[in-house]
């Protein structure tokens, strides 16, 4: 779901993903999931540049890697095949 959100909306930070997911992603787990996906090579991240004079920590923006896009494409293809197979069986 995180990959789909990133493909749809482009670069996002953690809290924006929670808001964009309409409640399907939870704030208490999204950062752990993002960290693990980055560790596994599905996501790249960069820190948002702070405007001059701004204080605080810069937010971290996430983008899917090429590998993640390939995995997502393969997953969608598999989903389509399975859906087609199921509809054929039901008919």
């Amino acid at each position: 779901m995180i990959l789909e959100l990133l493909v749809e909306h482009g670069e996002l930070f953690g809290l924006a993903m929670v808001e964009a997911s309409g409640g399907r992603l939870k704030r208490g787990t999204v950062y752990v999931t993002l960290g693990r996906m980055e560790e596994k090579g599905y996501l790249d991240s960069r820190q948002e540049p702070l405007p001059p004079g701004a204080t605080g920590l810069p937010r971290r923006l996430y983008t899917p890697t090429g590998h993640a896009l390939q995995v997502l494409a393969a997953w969608r293809a598999a989903e389509r095949v399975m859906a087609g197979h199921l509809s054929t069986t039901e008919a």
């Binding site: 930070f13 950062y31 993002l34 960290g35 980055e38 560790e39 605080g56 920590l57 937010r59 971290r60």
Partner: peptide
């Protein structure tokens, strides 16, 4: 690693949301 990858983004989003 956990502090950088997990907690730092959480706190940064929190700060921005708070402001």
């Amino acid at each position: 690693d956990a502090a950088t990858r997990v907690f730092e983004p959480l706190v940064a989003d929190w700060q921005r949301e708070r402001r």
